[in-house]
Amino acid sequence: MRLATYEHGGTVRAGVVSGDGVHAFAAGVTTLDLARGGLPAALEAGAAALGWPAVPLAEVRLLPPLEPPSIRDFVAFEEHVEGMVAPGSVPPEWYEAPTFYFTNPAALVGAHDDVPVPPGSRSFDFELEVAAVLGPDAIFGYTIMNDWSARDLQRREMRVNLGPAKGKDSATTLGPWLVTADELEPYRDADGFLALAMRVAVNDVEVGQDLLSNMGWPFEELVAYAGRGTRLRAGDVLGSGTCGNGGCLAELWGRRGEEQPPPLQPGDVVEMTVEGVGTIRNTVVPGGVLPPVRPARRRPRNRLQPERT
């Protein structure tokens, strides 16, 4: 079942997507509510909603499928690490345990929304991922995730051994909808991974393609690791991290030693398709102009107590 959040006629609703369009749930019901209630109840509610008239998809604006409590983004593809971090090799620490960072739930954009270039960035990039959404006791569903990245800002931040921060928090696309976990079980391979074909194109020219089953850990193990020593909540989003073989421009730059293909520019259209899930297509637009960031003051490290009168 495909669950969407959409805007139509100035009203935001959650609904079930069919071949006829999107069928609304009762007013006030959100996709996050459905995730919190668990998959069996959501499937039952979705089946009932399919009995209501549909609004054609061409008449709605698809929003991010849900407003998650948190977003963790992993780096689960060995080939991506090999291209990004150390071309030709992978740090041994990567193999020891999954690694993730937290990104900004307030910066989500929809499947076809415009995406501004972050302020101050001249090296804008996409990242092709799949994200899992948690239910109360298991993975509830999956969606496509584009972890938009300002590589120049990110590189500066990472040199301080902290982050990423502003290099990542301007926009994250989730969409086009949330596919419930039962729909993707037929794609599971003998090792427990979802063998979904993933593709990304810029201006209708394919840049990268991979299989989701090339992850180093299945999603269930990412969930288990994320929950060690802490509490996960229904609706939490866990990104797979960028796939290999051109899942982002920076991986190609690392392998080629130059920024080719070039960074994204206003007017570029990035389209991502994941088998069994759908397609998202966002246009890059100019960002806002902000004043330069004020650098830290340089000062003597005086340890003496100042005199007071």
Rank of each mutant, 00 (worst) to 15 (best):
H112C: 07
Q209G: 04
L63F: 14
T31A: 11
Y95T: 06
G83R: 15
F140M: 11
A97P: 00
D169M: 10
T230Y: 02
F126T: 02
N282R: 06
D191T: 13
G88R: 09
G175P: 02
G276N: 07
G239T: 09
P91E: 08
F124K: 00
D189S: 10
V179K: 10
L43T: 06
E127H: 08
F140R: 10
N104L: 11
L162Y: 14
S121F: 05
G175L: 07
T273R: 13
T31L: 13
M272K: 05
V237A: 01
V17F: 08
R122F: 08
N146E: 06
G246E: 00
Q154C: 07
E127V: 11
F126Q: 01
D268K: 10
V85K: 11
P266S: 03
E307D: 15
E221Y: 15
N302V: 15
G175I: 08
L62F: 12
A48T: 14
R159V: 05
L32S: 05
T30P: 02
P136A: 12
E221A: 14
Y95A: 13
T309P: 15
V270K: 06
F25D: 01
S213M: 10
G227T: 11
A49T: 03
F100C: 02
V85R: 09
R308W: 12
P68K: 05
L232M: 11
E67H: 14
F74C: 03
N245K: 15
E251V: 05
M272G: 02
R228F: 11
R2W: 01
A47G: 14
D236F: 00
T273N: 01
V223N: 10
Q260F: 12
N203G: 09
G288I: 13
A250R: 12
V55P: 12
W94S: 05
A111G: 06
E275F: 04
S240D: 03
L212D: 03
P261L: 03
L57P: 12
P40F: 01
G9T: 06
V109F: 04
G239Y: 07
K168G: 00
D152N: 08
G19K: 07
P91V: 11
V223P: 13
A181K: 00
E221N: 10
L194A: 02
M84N: 12
R294N: 05
P105G: 01
E127P: 03
D33Y: 09
S121I: 09
Q209A: 14
P118H: 11
A234N: 13
G227D: 15
P164V: 11
A138Q: 15
V17P: 08
P119S: 03
E271F: 00
Q154T: 11
A131H: 03
V205Y: 04
L252M: 15
W94C: 07
R298A: 12
M158R: 12
G46E: 04
S149N: 03
V16M: 05
R188T: 00
